[in-house]
Every structure is written in C-alpha cells, then in structure tokens.
Amino acid sequence: MTSQTLTLDLRDDIRQGREPFSKIMSAAAGLQAGDQLLLIAPFEPVPLFGVLERQGFTHQAERTPSGDWQVAFKRQSTGTPASAGLIPDLEHKCTAEVVEVDARGLEPPQPLVKILEAIAGLGLGAELKARTDRRPMHLYAHLDERGFSAETQEQPDGTFLTHVRRS
C-alpha cells in the first residue's frame, strides 16, 4: 500500500482569524496507517501533538527558515479494533484516556456545540468529562444518536459533570 502525504498550509487561515481545527481533524481522520499529514503553521501547535497522538499519530516538528513551523504527523495505526492488538502501547493509552471539556460560562447552545465537537475527535475507548452550568438536557438525544452514553452528576458548587463514553 503506497503511503501518501497530505499537506495543510494553515498560515493563511490563522492570519485571517479562521479556526482550522476542524480542517485538521477531518484531514487526519481520512488518513490510513503509514500516511502523513504535513502541517504548516506560524507557530508550534503543541496542543495538537497530544490530540493527534491519541489518534495514533507520531509527530516531528521543525522550524523553517522563514520562522514558520512544519510538523509531520505520521499515522502509526488506524485505531480500528482489528489492529488494536498489534500496538499494545497505543491501545493501553487509548483506554486510559479522559478528555476534559469545560463548557461552563457559555451561552446556549455553545455548551452543546463544544461537547459534541469534542466527541467528534474522541478516540476509541476514550472517555469525555464535560463540565456545565446546567444539566445538559439537549445533549442526551444527540449522544444517543452518535452511539454514546452519558451520566450526569451534580457537583457541590451547583455545576454539573457529565461522563460520556461510547455505548
């Protein structure tokens, strides 16, 4: 299987104030094992390293002469159940992973949007912990539809903590 390299130049997007996270995640989702995602950004996208690592990517970052950053993300495994056994390290990482989303202090429907988008990027076996000001009534039906289940606990400070995992 020939491996491909997908290049995403984000410099213009970022300069225009556009949010490229979705572009990156959907590009990453389309890659097979052995494929590469080459990102060009005006700064070192450190938070991405962890996010994509959880999806099974290694990274190699280098600074270009122009001062921009070029990061090569290489997919090690597609993360499907069939290949999970081959890479025990990554599998172990996946099942222990908990993503935290703070959706407090946001006007509706932002908490809903923030949580659902975080779920879109959730790896297999990963869990999501979402904090909200109110019980997220509108969330449950959407989670159900996307194949997730949730449990909400009220916190002592009056906010709510919802655990989301794949059902």
Binding site: G17, P20, P47
Partner: peptide, 23 residues
C-alpha cells in the same frame, strides 16, 4: 473557511481557552 467577523474565540492551536474549536 468561516467568516472571520463572526468568530470571537481564540485559536485552539495556541492552546488558549476557546469557546468552540470548530464553528
């Protein structure tokens, strides 16, 4: 590409707190 005028959040890439990483 989203409409930059409507975006009020800072980039997720910079690790800064953001209202929504996508839309």
């Amino acid at each position: 590409p989203s409409n930059p005028a409507k975006s009020t959040n800072r980039s997720e890439l910079t690790g800064a707190k953001t209202a929504s990483p996508l839309s």
